[in-house]
Structures are given as C-alpha cells and as structure tokens.
C-alpha cells in the first residue's frame, strides 16, 4: 500500500490512483484543516507544502506525492507552540471566518522562508492566489510582516 508522509507521520493510503491530494487529506485521513472553495486552482484555499513548496492540493494527484514531505496546517504548530504566522494572524486580527486562513498561512510560509523581510509588493504577489472574502487582506498582510520579523529574529 502506498505511504504518504504528512506532517512527519507516515500514512498508509489505499489509492485507486485518481484521487487528488486534497481528497486524500480530507476524506481519507480526516485532515480537514485544508479546505477548498473551488477545486479548480483559483482560490488557494487548499494550499499545502510539498517538499517546502506551496502547492494547490486540489490539482495534485496523491499518487504523485508518495516520496514527498507533505506539510499541512495541522503540522505547523509544535506541541503548544504556534508557528509565528499562526500567532501573528491572531495578534493582527487577520482571521474572520477562518476558511481561507490555512491556505493563506501556507502560502505566506513559503514566502517568508525564502524572504523573511518581504516588501508589501512581494507579499501582495505571494498571496495573490489566495482569496479572502471577509477581511480585505490588509490585516493578513500586516500579520505576514509581523511573522517575518519574528522568524528573522529567531534565526
């Protein structure tokens, strides 16, 4: 049976072959933190990391991820310690309905790991694929800036 490595745990998954990574995460493994709002790569809500890169899980076949390191929103916090992005999203009031937030955080994480001090334009560009209908983006952008500062300081 194929094995997927998700959040540093190994999951044996019975795959027919046509399942997307999104379906496997949500429907087979109960990792429902990853959402979707379109299932056609337009909303960014299903963003996860594969080998450190932000990827849309709705258009990724699970069978293609067998040798990969997959990270979802559930794997971000360590014990009781939130990831700086999670803390910053709380501090800045960036969360309203919360549905876009897992994808938003995963997209921001890729950006900040490459560049912890992005300009506003760089943040706009990195998050442009993630829709939010509640918050008007400003507090999300402020949260990413705060998290970047903290991630840089922690290095």
């Amino acid at each position: 049976m194929p094995t997927l490595k998700i959040n540093n745990k190994e999951y044996e998954v019975n795959l027919k072959g046509h399942e997307t990574l999104l379906e496997v995460l949500r429907d087979h493994l109960g990792l429902t933190g990853t959402k979707t709002a379109c299932e056609e790569s337009e909303c960014g809500t299903c963003t996860v990391h594969i080998n450190g890169k932000a990827v849309l899980s709705c258009i990724k076949l699970a069978a293609d991820c067998v040798d990969d390191e997959i990270l979802t929103i559930e794997g971000l916090a360590h014990a009781d310690q939130l990831h700086p992005l999670q803390q910053a999203f709380l501090d800045k009031g960036a969360v309203q309905c919360g549905f876009c937030i897992p994808g938003m955080i995963m997209s921001a994480k890729e950006l900040l790991e490459k560049n912890p001090t992005p300009t506003r334009e760089e943040i706009d560009y990195a998050l442009d694929g993630n829709l939010c209908r509640c918050a008007g983006y400003l507090k999300i952008i402020e949260a990413v800036e705060q998290a970047g500062r903290e991630m840089k300081a922690a290095k």
């Binding site: 933190g33 559930e74 999203f89 709380l90 969360v95 937030i101 897992p102």
Partner: peptide
C-alpha cells in the same frame, strides 16, 4: 481564532 489558525 486558535482553531482557525491551526486548522482544527
């Protein structure tokens, strides 16, 4: 908020 940023 905590549940929302952790996917719970």
């Amino acid at each position: 908020g905590l549940g929302m940023v952790t996917g719970q």
